[in-house]
């Protein structure tokens, strides 16, 4: 296999072009409205259909590396839930996920006037995946006991009437890993709870079989999914994070396609020269 791209200069040129493709849209402030896909719309409708007496569990499994995709997804979902007045709980099996979630929720709570403890709660970071999920089916307050600050859940109005899996209207797993499989196997499946996933774009192709079988009701495909969801929540002219960042992603995709075509043209030309000589 060839060791590189022929020269360091070629590589540096490519990287410079990429940096320009990502950065320039931010200065140009151009936004291209997304077309909403089936999977994002299905998740939107699943959130809309959660009744007031049930809670949505938002499981945030991401760390700092994937906040570029997972944070806009989280924000889009929280915007929708707070706008619609849905009760939701943040938790995570990664220590950083609930921290990021808490910050976004506090910011959005001011925007939508949804105080903590009344509309949303942060159950915090949990360590034992299988044990926690199995225990949650039978008894959620007994498993979680307190929120992330140590306040007993019984003191929070958002937890009124929430006892076990039957009181969970929807689980949404925002994750860069395959932890959604544990949610499906140990909670959503046995508990009969609907489930949505917001993975990073690279995980998307793995999840389609579960969408087809109905084990997952909807999905946000990376940053594109977050942008589509935002356009459902705010309308096509919205200027939320996902929609604005997607312009950079679009430019990058065009650049990659152009470079692949250019690389092939150059190779065909070089091959013809070799044949001619």
């Amino acid at each position: 296999m060839e060791a590189g791209l022929g020269s360091d200069r070629t590589r540096r040129t490519l990287y410079l072009l990429l940096a320009a493709a990502i950065a320039l849209p931010f200065f140009a402030k151009t936004v291209i409205p997304p077309v909403v896909g089936r999977e994002a719309r299905a998740l939107y409708e699943a959130v809309e259909s959660v009744p007031p007496n049930k809670i949505i569990v938002l499981s945030l499994e991401f760390e700092a590396g994937t906040i570029g995709e997972n944070l806009p997804q989280t924000r889009a979902l929280m915007n929708h839930m707070m706008k619609s007045g849905k009760r939701f709980a943040i938790m995570g099996f990664d220590p950083m996920g609930p921290v990021f979630g808490q910050r976004e929720a506090e910011d959005l709570a001011k925007r939508w006037n949804r105080p903590y403890g009344k509309y949303w709660v942060n159950w915090g970071y949990k360590t034992a995946v299988v044990q926690t999920l199995k225990a949650m089916i039978r008894d959620i307050p007994g498993t979680m006991v307190t929120d992330h600050r140590g306040t007993p859940l019984s003191k929070l109005p958002v937890m009124d009437g929430i006892k076990d899996a039957k009181d969970v209207g929807l689980i949404i797993d925002v994750t860069p890993s395959a932890l959604y499989e544990a949610w499906m196997a140990y909670f959503a499946g046995p508990g009969g709870v609907k489930m949505g996933v917001a993975p990073t774009a690279v995980m998307v192709s793995d999840i389609f079989p579960y969408l087809d079988s109905g084990q997952i009701v909807g999905m946000l495909k990376g940053l594109a999914g977050a942008a589509q969801y935002e356009s459902l929540v705010f309308g096509r002219d919205a200027r939320e994070r996902g929609i604005t960042w997607m312009t950079s992603v679009s430019m990058t995709h065009i650049l990659i396609i152009a470079l692949i075509i250019l690389g092939n043209i150059l190779e065909i030309a070089a091959r013809r020269r070799r044949t001619a000589t």
């Binding site: 490519l14 990502i22 590396g65 906040i67 470079l259 690389g263 065909i268």
Partner: peptide, 25 residues
Amino acid sequence: SNLGGTVFALLAFYIVSASYRAFRL
């Protein structure tokens, strides 16, 4: 957090160089 994001962002650059090198007809 920023260091983690930076390392993940390297992927974008590597995808460009890998695609340019590997996608041949």
